[in-house]
């Protein structure tokens, strides 16, 4: 059913949860590529045991680089029509990913971005909400797009989009870079509501809001 879809999962030190995430996702998506970005724990082995293809960076390069590696890997599969970028920490819902691929199957868009702010399911804290709003505002300004949630890791792209995108921002600014390239390549895009689950685990290790400073700097000094 989803033989034409690759789930691209950037992986960095998530040994605790990765097996569950992969097992759960594999019930729907048989093709999953985990890009292990030089994890120091046994994340890669656990992902492999759970049934994912694991591509291992010999050194840590950053999430943006991991995504591009996953894209390059998926492009090797001639049967691949769609790619979904999916977080390794269990924040994303498989059902959301499914809905996004179905949206792409309607063929009127090339890219589907997930947004936390289109419905009330996701409940980020007040500070996080504020930071995300600011980041989205900046991203819209820089990339001349109109999105409600620019830094959501859940997105789906079709083959056309994948071939015209080349992520060069190794670290965190890749989210804005993808948006910028989608806009520049005149790809058709839309947003769908997704539910991002802030678990104890993801909250404990998740991106601190300091990252917004890093993202901004990386964008300014391209």
């Amino acid at each position: 059913m989803y033989d034409d879809t690759w789930l691209v999962v950037p992986l960095f030190n998530e040994a605790q949860v990765i097996a569950d995430v992969i097992t759960e996702a594999r019930r729907t998506f048989p093709k999953i590529v985990c890009v292990d970005d030089g994890s120091g724990d046994d994340s890669a082995a656990r992902a492999r045991a759970a049934g994912a293809v694991v591509v291992q960076h010999p050194i840590n390069l950053g999430q943006g680089a991991a995504l591009q590696t996953g894209f390059s890997y998926a492009l090797q599969d001639p049967a691949m029509q769609y790619v979904v970028t999916f977080d390794s920490d269990g924040q994303h819902q498989v059902s959301d990913a499914e809905a996004m691929v179905e949206r792409l199957r309607q063929k009127d868009v090339d890219v589907v971005f997930g947004s936390r702010f289109l419905d009330a399911r996701t409940k980020p804290g007040l500070l996080k909400r504020l930071v995300l709003r600011v980041a989205t505002g900046m991203s819209n300004l820089f990339t001349r797009t109109r999105l409600t949630d620019a830094h959501n890791g859940l997105r789906a792209l079709n083959r056309t989009a994948l071939t015209s995108i080349q992520i060069r921002q190794n670290r965190m600014a890749h989210a804005s870079e993808i948006v910028a390239q989608v806009a520049k390549s005149k790809l058709r895009y839309t947003e769908v509501p997704v539910h991002v689950l802030y678990t104890e685990y993801s909250r404990a290790k998740g991106q601190s809001i300091w990252n917004s400073v890093n993202i901004l700097t990386e964008l300014l000094y391209r």
Binding site: V54, V55, Q56, H57, L61, T69
Partner: peptide, 28 residues
């Protein structure tokens, strides 16, 4: 940027691609 390309190349080559072992190496 060069290191990134190099590391990606290594990663992809190491992983291989089961379905088609042939012409995949100059993709990234």
């Amino acid at each position: 940027a060069q290191i990134t390309q190099l590391a990606r190349r290594i990663a992809l080559d190491e992983a291989g691609f089961p379905a088609q072992p042939g012409p995949t190496s100059d993709q990234a």
